[in-house]
C-alpha cells in the first residue's frame, strides 16, 4: 500500500476532526481509497471517513489491508509535516508498521516516521440507505457557532425543521436559548447558502457535546449537510469535493 498527498493540510484536518471522538481505529485500505468507520466509546456517535483514491496525488493498494492506528499518535506524526509538505504513507504486507514520509516542495527537507500498528477489533455497523425527511445544507461555520452558543445554556439541542426554517433550541439551569436559520439563496456565493429540503417536518433532540465534536470538521468544508428523519440518527456530512467526506452519525435522545 502506498498513498501520496500533495499537501499534508487535508490529512491533518481530517485527523484533527475525528481524533478526539474515536481515539484508536482501523483504516481500511482498498484500491478505491482509504476509509474508516468507528463509534465513540459510549456508542452514541459513529464516524465514517472516506478518502477516495482519485483525491490522492498517487495511490496504490495491491492487497486490501486494515491498519489499526492510534489517531492521537497519527496526529503527533502529522504535526511534524508542514501544511504544504507532501505526505506519503507506505505499508508492506504483513508488516506491523506504517511509514510516513514528508517532503517539502523545494525538496530540501525529507522526514520519515514509522508508526507501530495496533490490533483493533472494529465493530462495523451497516448504515442503511435512508430517504431523509429533512435535509439542511448550510455554512459549516454557522453550525459550529450555533452549537457553541447553545452549549452555554444546555446539554441538549432540539433541532426542528419546518418548510423554510430550521430551529435549534436548548434550555438549562440559567435559562434558554434558540437560534432560527432561514433558507437563503446565494447564486454568487453558494457556500453561504442555507437550503432546506423538507419532505416531512422533523423534530429531534441531540446531545450538544457530540455536535461540538463534529464541528471540528468545519475547517475541511465550507458547507455541511444535516440529514434528519424522525426516530433515526442524525447524519452530519462535511463534503470534501474530489477527495471524499466525513460523515458523523448521532443517535437521538428519546422520551421514555
Amino acid at each position: 500500500f502506498e498513498a501520496k498527498w500533495d499537501h499534508a493540510s487535508t490529512l491533518k484536518k481530517v485527523i484533527d476532526a475525528v481524533k478526539d471522538l474515536i481515539g484508536d481505529t482501523s483504516w481500511d485500505c482498498t484500491n478505491t481509497g482509504m476509509s474508516l468507520q468507528s463509534m465513540d466509546s459510549s456508542h452514541v456517535a459513529l464516524v465514517h471517513v472516506l478518502l477516495k483514491s482519485e483525491g490522492f496525488e498517487s495511490y496504490r493498494c495491491d492487497r486490501n489491508v486494515s491498519m489499526g492506528i492510534s489517531l492521537n499518535s497519527m496526529a503527533k506524526v502529522l504535526k511534524c509535516a508542514g501544511n504544504d509538505d507532501s505526505v506519503t504513507l507506505r505499508h508492506e504486507s504483513e508488516s506491523s508498521v506504517v511509514n510516513f514520509a514528508f517532503e517539502s516542495h523545494k525538496e530540501e527537507r525529507v522526514s520519515e516516521f514509522e508508526l507501530k500498528l495496533m490490533n483493533i477489533d472494529t465493530e462495523h455497523l451497516g448504515i442503511p440507505e435512508t430517504e431523509y425527511d429533512s435535509i439542511i445544507k448550510m455554512p459549516s461555520a454557522d453550525l459550529r457557532r450555533t452549537c457553541a452558543d447553545l452549549s452555554q445554556f444546555g446539554d441538549s439541542v432540539t433541532i426542528s425543521c419546518a418548510k423554510s426554517d430550521v430551529r435549534f433550541e436548548t434550555s438549562g439551569d440559567i435559562g434558554t436559548g434558540n437560534v432560527r436559520l432561514s433558507a437563503r439563496g446565494s447564486s454568487d456565493k453558494p457556500e453561504t447558502e442555507i437550503a432546506i429540503e423538507m419532505i416531512n417536518p422533523v423534530s429531534l433532540t441531540f446531545a450538544l457535546k457530540y455536535l461540538n465534536f463534529f464541528t471540528k470538521a468545519a475547517p475541511l468544508s465550507d458547507t455541511v449537510k444535516l440529514c434528519m428523519s424522525n426516530n433515526h440518527p442524525l447524519c452530519v456530512e462535511f463534503p470534501m469535493p474530489e477527495v471524499g467526506y466525513i460523515r458523523y452519525y448521532l443517535a437521538p435522545k428519546i422520551d421514555e
Binding site: 463509534m39 459510549s42 456508542h43 452514541v44 456517535a45 459513529l46 465493530e123 462495523h124 455497523l125 451497516g126 448504515i127 442503511p128 441538549s156 433532540t205 446531545a207 433515526h232 440518527p233 452519525y249 443517535a251 437521538p252 435522545k253 428519546i254 422520551d255 421514555e256
Partner: peptide, 14 residues
C-alpha cells in the same frame, strides 16, 4: 427527561 439512544439501536452490526 429524554434518554440517550445508542448507535446499535438503529444500525446493525455487519
Amino acid at each position: 427527561g429524554p434518554v440517550q439512544g445508542r448507535m446499535e439501536d438503529y444500525f446493525k452490526a455487519i
